[in-house]
Amino acid sequence: MASGVVPDDQALLEALADGDLGALSQLYDRHAPWLSVRLTRRCNDREVVADVLQDTFVAVWQGAGRYQGRGEVGAWMWGIAIRRLVSRLRTRRDVVLMGNPVSMGSSAAGAPSLAVEDELLQGVEYGDLGHAMASLSPEMRAVIQATVLDGLTTREAARLLGIPQGTVKTRSHRAKAHLRASLLEGRRS
Score class of each variant (00 low, 15 high):
34 W>N: 14
34 W>P: 11
34 W>G: 12
34 W>Y: 06
34 W>C: 15
35 L>M: 15
35 L>G: 01
35 L>W: 01
36 S>P: 01
36 S>H: 03
37 V>C: 14
37 V>H: 12
38 R>W: 13
39 L>V: 12
40 T>W: 09
40 T>R: 13
41 R>W: 04
45 D>S: 14
45 D>L: 01
45 D>N: 03
45 D>K: 04
46 R>M: 06
46 R>N: 08
47 E>S: 14
49 V>A: 00
50 A>M: 15
50 A>I: 10
51 D>G: 14
51 D>Y: 07
51 D>A: 12
51 D>H: 15
52 V>A: 09
52 V>N: 04
53 L>A: 08
53 L>R: 01
54 Q>M: 12
54 Q>N: 09
55 D>R: 13
55 D>A: 03
55 D>W: 15
56 T>N: 02
56 T>F: 00
57 F>C: 08
58 V>F: 09
59 A>L: 06
59 A>W: 04
59 A>I: 13
59 A>V: 09
60 V>I: 06
60 V>D: 02
60 V>H: 00
61 W>A: 07
62 Q>A: 11
63 G>C: 04
63 G>A: 06
63 G>Y: 03
65 G>I: 12
65 G>D: 10
66 R>L: 10
68 Q>D: 07
68 Q>E: 07
68 Q>A: 04
69 G>N: 04
70 R>F: 06
70 R>G: 11
70 R>P: 10
70 R>C: 14
71 G>I: 05
71 G>R: 11
72 E>I: 03
73 V>M: 09
73 V>K: 05
73 V>F: 15
74 G>M: 09
74 G>E: 10
75 A>N: 08
75 A>H: 13
76 W>A: 05
76 W>I: 08
77 M>G: 07
77 M>Y: 03
78 W>L: 07
78 W>H: 08
79 G>E: 11
80 I>T: 05
80 I>F: 02
81 A>T: 04
